[in-house]
Design a binder for these strands. Structure first.
Length: 603
RNA sequence: GCCGACGUAGCUCAAUCGGCAGAGCAACCGCCUUGUAAGUGGUAGGUUACGGGUUCGAUUCCCGUCGUCGGCUCCA
């Protein structure tokens, strides 16, 4: 391969254009709103932002005038001039800017950069000036504003953002913008955003009648419509098949448990805030479960276990409830009621690697079925500072387990990235990040090691040597929750589900009402063959029926007129627009059954 | 939870400055009997999210609640 290593974004001209736009925007904002305190304004993916502490709220309309002023500044062909200063000089320059002074303190101590990230060595303090605006900034920037095309810059939105990303701090006003090399690139980007809107799972979910939210039911509590129900049934069928083959045992547990169980598991002190509040009956407090593990632990403990029994893999599509904060809810992706593709694998330390990689193999099989090509395994580790607070206080075990996972991934040839301070409270985890077709990134699958909770439940097995040992536990959810999975799949397929997942696989369309009976007969045949089918017997014309089926993204339409009824055939119209006339019903059935049986992406 | 915007018929969206709330699609009742993305006529459909206030009069202005959206924070 003679491919050159791609230029780092941070080194690119586009990055400098965006970073410089952030400064230019800050200048404009300061001109319009004297007394504004400015904080930080970096380039980000697709654009830039700047966070301000404004003396007054601003609105969407204000963005237009700020944008206009930015264009004027850009047209002024100003140089960006870098200068290295001492901390004292910097304090003098920014004496009226408290946020900047705080940043200077951080830089001087060498502890933090302007984003609040810890630094290893003491940085130089530099400032950048263009026109009348001076900012404390590491750079880099364009040399001159003429390198920015004013027609390729656009301000996008206003949002709140906490100073230094900490919710205890003041909320600032953030303005987002986007900038590109050329106006054409900007237009292409805006068009991409438009298209993304069209395949947003919330929009598709409504149009395709998959799910709804109802005010009277409550926020974050989706109602699955019949078509959504079908998709869920199919996903469960898939999971059960795969898990059965992989040696999982299915269990079932209640939605409620006594408080004691979550005290024992250690979840309550860590997660009480994101659990629904307890209900009390007969003097005992009960919680709706936010996860299934404690109950699975109880099932493990229901009888004595020998090393010969291990690994034990307990699986359940468990229904859980989590009190996500109101602002965190997001369509199906973040909800308050969810059904998890959950399982807990109890194993010995020796078995760990094989079991762990077994789970990852399972992921990969799923990815293949769904045609997921881009994913990143992310190993989340503990953070030293969080020991005893966010994390179980046993550094030795953390390091040991993290090394076990790392080794397992290496030995399995699984590429991964590491993330400090993002583990679960009971152990390291491997999350799988994927990207939906509209570029929305999220965590789908998760695979967590638990070295802490089994001991709390006093889980044991009798080892070969006749001594009691505590098993390790792997928590895993390759298909995430039904909610997140269906949300992802909607965007991934843009609603064009493969045949096996399509809520309605076939719609039979009689051309006139004289063929209604023939159509119904076909539906009976198809159903007997295990193909989901319905007939459109409405009084509309054929064209309208086709249009409707097409909009509902039904993969197969069987159009039947007088000719077909006479000959006992159908005219097949496929969702992609292709058609085959006069085919025997049996041939169609064979085709559909083949696609369904193989969970094929082909139509 | 925090900052900001928004909430009109089942759906998508109108309604000038505060002056009788409207359209398309869907639904329902007809007519048309139809060949691969909307045939046609009619009927019905509303406490303008909810509660309060200002006003002769509020979808419109103000306050509160609920919900949604864009972000921030968070995500066992």
């Amino acid at each position: 391969m003679s491919e050159k290593i791609a230029e780092r974004y941070e080194d690119s001209l586009l990055y400098r254009i965006r970073h410089s736009c952030a400064h230019i925007m800050a200048q404009a904002v300061l001109e319009f709103y004297p007394g504004t305190k400015y904080t930080i304004g970096p380039a980000i993916e697709n654009g830039f932002y700047y966070d301000f502490d404004l003396p007054q709220p601003i609105t969407q309309e204000d963005l237009e005038k700020i944008e206009k002023r930015m264009r004027q500044i850009i047209a002024g062909n100003h140089n960006f001039i870098r200068k290295v200063v001492t901390a004292e000089e910097a304090r003098q320059i920014f004496k009226d800017q408290p946020y900047k002074l705080e940043l200077i303190d951080g830089l001087e101590q060498g502890a933090f950069d302007e984003d609040g990230n810890p630094l290893t060595e003491k940085p130089e303090i530099s400032i950048y000036q263009h026109d009348t605006f001076i900012d404390l900034c590491r750079g880099p920037h364009v040399e001159n504003t003429r390198q920015i095309n004013p027609a390729a810059v656009k301000l996008m939105s206003i949002a709140g953002a906490y100073w230094r990303g900490d919710e205890k701090n003041k909320m600032l006003t953030r303005i987002y913008g986007t900038a590109w090399h050329t106006p054409e690139e900007l237009q292409a980007y805006l068009k991409m955003l438009e298209e993304a809107k069209a395949r947003d799972h919330r929009k598709l979910g409504k149009e395709l009648e998959i799910f709804i939210f109802e005010d009277e039911v409550g926020p974050g509590l989706p109602l699955w419509l019949p078509r959504g129900g079908v998709i869920i049934e199919e996903l469960e069928k898939l999971a059960k098949e795969m898990e059965e083959q992989a040696g999982y045992l299915r269990v079932r547990t209640p939605h409620l448990t006594k408080e004691d169980l979550f005290l024992r598991s250690g979840h309550l002190p860590y997660y009480a805030e994101s659990m629904y509040p307890p209900m009390e009956i007969e003097g005992v407090r009960y919680y709706v479960k936010p996860m299934n593990c404690p109950m699975h632990h109880k099932i493990y403990a229901s009888k004595p276990r020998s090393y010969r029994d291990l690994p034990i893999r307990l699986a359940e599509y468990g229904t859980c409830y989590r009190y996500e904060k109101s602002g965190e809810l997001f369509g199906l992706m973040r909800v308050r009621s969810m059904q998890m593709n959950d399982a807990h694998i109890y194993c010995t330390e020796e078995q760990f690697e094989q079991e762990f990689l077994g789970v990852i193999e399972l992921y990969k099989k799923y990815f293949e079925i769904f045609g997921i090509q881009k994913y990143v395994m992310r190993l989340s580790l503990h953070g030293k500072a969080g020991l005893g607070k966010k994390y179980v206080d046993n550094e030795r075990l953390w390091l040991k387990t993290e090394e076990m996972v790392r080794r397992a991934l290496h030995n399995g040839g699984i590429p991964f990235v590491e993330a400090e301070d993002e583990a679960a409270f009971y152990g390291p985890k491997v999350d799988v990040q994927i990207w939906s077709a509209i570029g929305r990134e999220f965590t789908l699958a998760t695979n967590q090691v638990d070295f802490a909770v089994p001991a709390r439940f006093d889980l044991k097995y009798m080892s070969k040597d006749g001594v009691e040992e505590t098993p390790l536990c792997i928590h895993r959810a390759p298909l995430s929750t039904h909610e997140r999975m269906v949300g992802f799949l909607l965007e991934h397929y843009a609603g064009n589900f493969p045949v096996w997942l399509s809520p309605e696989q076939t719609r039979v369309i009689p051309i006139t009402d004289k063929q209604n009976e023939y159509a119904e007969q076909i539906v009976r045949h198809l159903r007997a063959e295990g193909i989901r089918a319905s007939a459109d017997l409405s009084a509309q014309r054929m064209n309208a029926k086709i249009r409707e089926a097409q909009l509902m993204k039904v993969p197969y339409m069987l159009i039947v007129g007088e000719n077909e009824a006479q000959a006992g055939t159908v005219s097949l119209r496929v969702r992609d627009g292709s058609r085959q006339d006069n085919i025997r019903l049996g041939d169609f059935i064979a085709r559909a059954k083949d696609r369904i049986a193989h969970r094929s992406p082909e139509l």
